[in-house]
Amino acid sequence: MKIRFLLLLFLFSFSTALGAREVQLVDRIAAVVNDEVITLSEVDEAALPLYQKYLAGVTDPEEESRRMQKIRKEVLERLIEEKLIAQEIRKYKIKVSDEEVEGFIQEIKTRLGGEEAFRDFLNAQGLTEEEYREQVRQQLQRLKLIRGSVQARIVITDEEVRRYYEEHYLKGTEKTLRLAAIVTSEEARIREAEKALAQGKDFSEVARKYSEIPGSGESFGTFKLSELAPELRRVLAKRRPGEVTPPVASGGRWFIFKVLSIENATKPFEAVKEEIRQNLYQKALDEYFQKWLKGLKERAFIQVFLK
Rank of each mutant, 00 (worst) to 15 (best):
N264R: 15
S211Q: 06
A17E: 05
A17Y: 12
G148S: 13
D158M: 15
E287L: 10
V272M: 13
R162G: 09
G148R: 14
K195C: 04
R133Y: 10
S261H: 08
F220E: 03
I154E: 01
D44S: 02
N264Q: 13
G114R: 06
F305V: 00
A249W: 07
E275K: 05
E231T: 10
I3W: 09
L9M: 07
N123P: 03
R133K: 15
E63A: 14
S211D: 15
L260A: 03
S97F: 12
L143S: 09
E116V: 13
E45K: 01
P214G: 02
R233P: 09
S65W: 14
G252R: 11
V161S: 06
P246W: 04
L7P: 11
S15P: 01
L179R: 01
Q125E: 02
V43P: 04
F5S: 01
E275Q: 03
T157G: 10
T222S: 12
L225A: 14
D202F: 10
V183R: 15
V23T: 07
Q282E: 07
K258P: 02
I105C: 06
E166F: 09
T184Q: 02
A181V: 02
R147S: 05
E287H: 03
V183W: 14
L9Y: 07
R28Y: 04
K91Y: 15
A47L: 08
I85N: 04
G252L: 09
S204K: 10
R178D: 09
V259L: 02
E205V: 08
Q139Y: 03
L50G: 00
L170I: 04
L170M: 15
T59Q: 10
L79P: 11
F10N: 00
K53P: 01
R66S: 15
E186L: 13
A46W: 14
L48V: 02
V206M: 03
I38Q: 03
E42F: 14
L7K: 15
I156F: 04
E298D: 06
S226I: 08
Y210F: 11
K238L: 03
E174D: 13
V33Y: 07
Q290D: 08
D286A: 06
A56T: 01
V23N: 02
A46M: 08
F104R: 00
Q141M: 14
R21V: 00
Q125A: 12
L236P: 02
E160C: 06
E81D: 13
H168T: 12
S97V: 14
E63P: 09
L145T: 07
T110Q: 14
E166G: 02
A188M: 14
F289D: 05
V206I: 11
L25Q: 05
S185P: 14
Q139W: 13
Y169C: 13
E130A: 02
R162F: 12
K209E: 13
E218P: 01
M1I: 15
F305H: 00
L122I: 06
G295T: 14
G217K: 11
Q106T: 01
E116D: 01
L6N: 13
G172S: 12
